Structure formats: C-alpha cells, structure tokens
Simulated assay, not measured.
Amino acid sequence: MQMAGKRPETAEIHATAIVDPRARIGENVRIGPWCLVGPNVTIGDGVCLHASVLVDGYTTLREGVEVYPFVTIGLAPQDLKYAGEPTLCEVGANTVIRENVTIHRGTAQGHALTRIGANCLIMANSHVAHDCVLGDRVIIVNNVVMGGHVEIDDDAKIMGSAALHQFVRIGRGAVVGGVCGVEMDVIPYGSVLGNRARLVGLNWIGLKRSGVGPEEMQAMRRAFRTLYPRHGATESVLEARIAEVRQEYGHLPRIAEMLDFMEAPSRRGLTRVARQEGQSETEGA
C-alpha cells in the first residue's frame, strides 16, 4: 500500500476520475471513468472500480474488491442522530458489489463501523445500512434492503427483494426467501419464507453442499423437531427444549452454534416457526 498522496505506477486511473491526493491507493488498482474517491479512502491492491463509483468517508476496500457502476460506499448514514462523526466503512477482500448498491458508514451510537466480509456478492440495487455487519461469503440477491445494525453471519444467503428489520440477526448458513419481510432473528442454518418470515425448516441443501454427512443431518433434523415441535404436539417452554437438545446433541458444533444463537441476547426475538396447515420442513434453498 502506498502512502497518501502517492500513486503507484501500476495503478490505472481514468482521466475523468477524481481521486483525492490524500487517498491511499494500492498496486494494480483500476479506477474507471467518472469515479470519485474521497480523501480518507484506502483502496487495496487489485481493486477495480468500473465506472461512476463514489467512495467516501473513512472507507477501506480490501484487496481484490470489484465495484460496478453507480455504487456509493461510505456515505453518511440515513440516521437523524448522525452528527458527522468520523465513523468507518469496510469491504472485505474479493467481494463483488454490483450496480446501484448503496453502503453507508456506521454511527457513533452503533458499532461506528459498517463491515462487509470477504468473498461476498452484493447484487444490484441492494442497500446495506449503517452499522450492518456481514460475515464472509454472504450472498445478497437483487433489491434486498436492510435496516441499521443488521448482522448476517458467514455463508448466509438473502434472496431477492427481502427486507431485514433493524437489529435483526441472520445466523450462519441461513437462507431467507425472496420477498420476505424479516422482523425477527433467523437461527443458524435456518430457512425462512413468507410475506412475514416464518421458519420452515433448516437449509438442508446448503448443509449438504457444505459437506455435512448423513448422521449429522439426522441429528440436526431431530434437534430441530425437538426445538420446534410440529403443530398439535405437546410443547414445553423453549428453555426446556434448548436444554434437552443441548444435553443430547450439544457435542455437535453446528447444533451447539444454533443453541448459543438462540440463547444470546436479542433486540428482536426469534423468528416463529410456520404453523400453516400442511406446512412441513423444507428440503430446499
């Protein structure tokens, strides 16, 4: 990484781009036509800003990030409490951000940081609000919108036009169906569907693709059915069901992660299981 004010010889900056001389620019960076890069921006090696990209604030793009036209990164949050504090925005290595995405920096009342992890894909017209934290390998499909302070763990997938309420947590490996309004937390490896999201099972296909074997799959299925009994079954309080599952399956890391997530403090509570007649656990997503 070069010091502020210096431009490495390997950087390609289009004549129409406006790059503040105080910005830090890495090796083999490509900044295309009509881009604007602010004074406190750090751009890592191999980053590509295709065209008409605006990056401002105390923003860091790690190595290999690729940003498509009409994206804005690091602008002030849409929060009336924000008073111009020097908060941060960070995009992890090799993440791809498609057209018209907006990513806002954090607030002093939150993490003071909006962070997107490595190897993510943020598809067109999506919005990542202030203080959101996305893990690695997260996929955000077109037109997804997030309120502030949303947390999405590694390998989660949010399908098109979903809306995530502020302070919602999405667990590792979970999948949110298209056009879902998510008002409550989604457990790790959970699958939610519906106009107002309801838990319909675990993300079995995603688990298979990640190499989970049949024995662990069966354990996870039994654990899920204990945690979320079928409609009409006798239900104990959730704390008792969690304790039962932890005693029998708590030695399995993925199940232990689910239980830890369910017991962690939450601003929104847990997404409720679907109770429609005939609804069963999904094998999809």
Score class of each variant (00 low, 15 high):
S210Y: 01
S280E: 10
Q166I: 09
L88K: 15
I31T: 13
T95Y: 04
I13F: 05
G160M: 02
V200T: 15
C48K: 11
G38N: 07
A162Y: 02
A112T: 00
G284M: 08
A15I: 15
L207Q: 06
L202M: 10
R222H: 13
E9K: 11
V128W: 00
T42E: 14
V91Q: 13
V175T: 10
L227A: 12
N40D: 14
I140D: 00
I97D: 05
Q218W: 11
E215W: 01
S191A: 13
S52L: 10
G26A: 04
E281L: 08
L54C: 15
A93I: 03
T102Y: 14
G213K: 02
A243C: 01
E235S: 06
V245Q: 00
P188S: 02
L75N: 13
S161V: 01
S236P: 00
G117K: 01
A93F: 06
D20I: 07
G148E: 06
G278C: 14
M123T: 01
Y249E: 10
G232E: 11
P77I: 11
G194K: 04
P253E: 12
G84R: 08
G269E: 07
T282F: 09
K81Q: 15
E66D: 10
G206A: 08
R241M: 06
A156V: 11
G250R: 03
S161N: 08
A219M: 13
G5V: 05
R24S: 11
R268T: 08
E244G: 01
A163G: 09
I158H: 05
S210E: 06
R275F: 05
L88D: 09
G178Q: 04
L202E: 01
D20E: 10
V145C: 09
I170N: 12
L121R: 10
R246W: 03
V144I: 09
A108E: 09
Y249Q: 07
I170F: 12
H50Q: 14
V47N: 02
I152A: 04
D56N: 07
L54E: 11
E239I: 01
N125P: 02
Q247R: 10
V237Q: 12
